[in-house]
Deep mutational scan, measured.
Amino acid sequence: SYYEILDVPRSASADDIKKAYRRKALQWHPDKNPDNKEFAEKKFKEVAEAYEVLSDKHKREIYDR
């Protein structure tokens, strides 16, 4: 789930989600993982997609249904 990707509970606040996104984006940024760039790019995209949905109140409500 998007919550698992960002490592936050379903009850996470918008601020918690933003902090988790920043932490995970740094962790999986391809430039930070030169030895495993392809895998890092995949993870980085997953993190971005999760944040896009969970950071938008309307999209998150739909996702949580």
Rank of each mutant, 00 (worst) to 15 (best):
S1W: 11
S1L: 12
S1P: 05
S1Q: 08
S1V: 07
Y2N: 02
Y2V: 03
Y2M: 05
Y2G: 01
Y2C: 06
Y3W: 03
Y3P: 00
Y3I: 00
Y3S: 00
E4K: 09
E4Y: 08
E4C: 14
I5K: 04
I5D: 04
I5G: 01
I5W: 12
I5V: 11
L6Y: 01
L6E: 00
L6A: 00
L6P: 01
L6Q: 00
L6N: 00
D7I: 02
D7F: 04
D7E: 13
D7C: 13
D7V: 03
V8K: 01
V8I: 13
V8Y: 00
V8M: 04
P9D: 12
P9L: 08
P9Q: 09
P9K: 09
P9V: 07
P9E: 08
P9C: 12
P9Y: 05
P9N: 08
P9R: 08
R10W: 10
R10H: 13
R10Y: 12
R10S: 11
R10E: 08
S11H: 14
S11K: 08
S11P: 03
S11E: 13
S11Y: 14
S11C: 15
A12Q: 00
A12Y: 00
A12K: 02
A12P: 03
A12C: 08
A12I: 02
S13Q: 05
S13K: 06
S13W: 02
S13D: 09
S13T: 13
S13H: 06
S13E: 05
S13L: 05
S13G: 07
A14F: 15
A14R: 08
A14P: 12
D15P: 06
D15E: 15
D15S: 11
D16R: 06
D16L: 07
D16C: 11
I17C: 02
I17T: 00
I17S: 00
I17G: 00
I17F: 04
K18H: 14
K18C: 12
K18Y: 15
K18M: 14
K19Q: 14
K19F: 07
K19M: 12
K19E: 15
A20G: 05
A20F: 01
A20P: 00
A20M: 03
A20D: 00
Y21G: 03
Y21S: 03
Y21T: 03
Y21P: 00
Y21R: 04
R22K: 15
R22N: 15
R22Q: 15
R22G: 12
R22H: 15
R23H: 11
R23T: 14
R23A: 15
R23Y: 08
K24F: 06
K24Q: 07
K24C: 08
K24H: 05
K24T: 04
A25V: 14
A25W: 15
A25H: 12
A25Y: 15
A25S: 14
A25R: 14
L26T: 11
L26R: 10
L26E: 15
L26C: 13
Q27K: 09
Q27F: 12
W28H: 04
W28M: 04
W28S: 03
W28Y: 12
W28A: 02
W28C: 04
H29I: 05
H29Y: 07
H29V: 05
P30D: 05
P30V: 06
P30R: 04
P30H: 05
D31G: 08
D31M: 10
K32Y: 14
K32A: 14
N33I: 04
N33T: 05
N33W: 15
N33H: 15
N33F: 14
P34V: 12
P34I: 12
P34F: 09
P34N: 08
P34G: 09
P34E: 14
P34C: 09
D35W: 09
D35T: 12
D35H: 14
N36L: 07
N36F: 08
N36R: 12
N36D: 09
N36V: 06
K37L: 14
K37I: 12
K37G: 06
E38A: 14
E38H: 09
E38G: 08
E38K: 09
F39C: 10
F39G: 06
F39P: 03
F39N: 07
F39E: 13
F39Y: 15
A40F: 09
A40W: 07
A40D: 03
A40Y: 09
A40M: 06
E41N: 10
E41T: 11
E41S: 12
E41I: 12
K42S: 10
K42M: 10
K42N: 09
K42P: 02
K42C: 13
K42A: 13
K42I: 14
K43L: 08
K43N: 07
K43G: 02
K43R: 13
F44E: 03
F44Y: 13
K45R: 13
K45C: 11
K45N: 11
E46H: 05
E46F: 04
E46M: 10
E46W: 05
V47E: 01
V47G: 01
V47S: 04
A48R: 15
A48N: 14
A48P: 00
A48S: 14
E49K: 11
E49L: 11
E49C: 08
E49D: 11
E49N: 08
E49Q: 09
A50H: 00
A50V: 03
A50E: 00
A50I: 02
A50D: 00
Y51E: 02
Y51T: 02
Y51A: 03
Y51R: 01
Y51V: 03
Y51K: 01
E52Y: 13
E52I: 10
E52F: 11
E52W: 13
E52Q: 13
E52P: 01
E52V: 06
V53H: 07
V53R: 03
V53A: 05
V53D: 01
V53W: 08
L54I: 03
L54E: 00
L54R: 00
L54K: 00
L54C: 01
L54D: 00
S55H: 07
S55D: 05
S55V: 09
S55F: 08
S55E: 04
S55A: 08
D56W: 01
D56T: 05
D56A: 03
D56P: 01
D56Q: 05
D56L: 02
K57H: 10
K57L: 11
K57C: 11
K57F: 12
K57N: 12
K57I: 14
H58W: 12
H58N: 15
H58V: 14
H58I: 14
H58G: 12
K59Q: 11
K59F: 06
K59T: 08
K59H: 05
K59M: 10
K59N: 06
R60W: 02
R60N: 03
R60A: 02
R60S: 02
R60M: 02
E61M: 11
E61W: 07
E61I: 07
E61H: 09
E61K: 08
E61T: 05
I62C: 12
I62L: 12
I62N: 10
I62V: 09
I62K: 11
Y63H: 04
Y63P: 02
Y63R: 02
Y63I: 03
Y63V: 03
D64I: 01
D64S: 02
D64V: 01
R65P: 04
R65Q: 14
R65M: 13
R65I: 12
